[in-house]
Computed example of a mutant assay.
Amino acid sequence: MFKGLGGLGDMTKMMKAAKDMQDRMQKLQEDLERMTVTGESGAGLVKATATAKGELTALDIDPSIFQPTEKEVVEDLILAAIKDAQRKAQEKSQSEMSRITQELGLPADMKLPF
C-alpha cells in the first residue's frame, strides 16, 4: 500500500538524530556557561576564574603583591592569570565537545559550530 515510501523511515530516524544532536549541543552550551576554571600566576598569588566559555567571572589578588615599585610585576601577574584561565576554558570546552561528538558517534576531530 505504501510501497515507495520506505525511505521515509530512514528520513524520520535521521531527523530524530539531528534533533537529538541539537538538543545535546544546546545543553552543552548551557553547561559550559556554568562550568568554571581557575587560572593562576605567581605561584597562586593571582587567580582568575572564568566560565568554560571564556568569560572572566572573578579575580583574586593576594594583597602582599601590592607594592608601589612592583606595579609592572602585578600587571604581568594579572594578565598571566587571565590568560591561564582562558587557556583552561578553551581546553575544557574542547574536551566537553569531544566527549559529546564521541557519544553521538561522530568523528572525534569533527569541528562543530560554536
Rank of each mutant, 00 (worst) to 15 (best):
P113F: 00
K111E: 15
K47M: 06
L112T: 01
G39V: 02
D20R: 15
Q22D: 07
V74I: 09
V46P: 05
M97G: 05
G54N: 06
R87I: 13
I100E: 12
G105L: 10
L56S: 07
K27L: 12
L77M: 07
I78K: 07
T51V: 00
R99K: 09
K27P: 06
E40N: 09
D84K: 04
V37D: 03
D20S: 13
M21C: 11
K19T: 08
A81K: 00
L45K: 14
T12F: 15
M11P: 07
P63V: 03
G39T: 02
T49F: 07
K16T: 07
D31R: 13
Q26F: 09
E91Y: 07
R99P: 00
Q94F: 02
G44Y: 01
A81C: 03
G54Y: 05
K71M: 11
A17D: 07
I82Y: 10
G42T: 02
G7V: 08
E33V: 03
E70I: 00
R99S: 05
F2Y: 14
M11L: 15
R24N: 04
A17H: 03
D10A: 14
I65Y: 03
E70N: 04
A50I: 01
I78C: 06
G54H: 07
K13N: 11
K47V: 04
I100W: 08
K16Q: 13
K16F: 04
P63R: 03
K3L: 13
M21S: 12
A108H: 11
E103F: 11
L112S: 00
Q90G: 12
L112C: 01
K111S: 14
P63E: 04
A52C: 03
Q90V: 14
R99E: 03
Q22K: 10
L45D: 10
M21P: 08
T38S: 06
P68M: 13
L8D: 13
K27Y: 06
P63K: 01
G9Y: 11
A81F: 01
T38D: 04
T51P: 00
S93L: 10
I82W: 09
Q90K: 14
R87W: 12
K13T: 08
K83N: 15
Q102I: 13
E75L: 04
P107L: 09
A52P: 00
G9C: 08
D84V: 01
Q86P: 07
G39H: 02
A85M: 07
K92C: 11
S64L: 04
T12N: 12
E103A: 11
T12K: 15
V74P: 03
D31M: 06
G44P: 02
G9D: 10
G39N: 05
D23P: 00
P113K: 03
E75R: 04
V73Q: 05
M15G: 07
K83R: 15
S98Y: 09
T69E: 15
G42S: 02
E33Q: 12
L32I: 01
L32W: 00
M110C: 11
L45R: 12
M1W: 15
E96T: 01
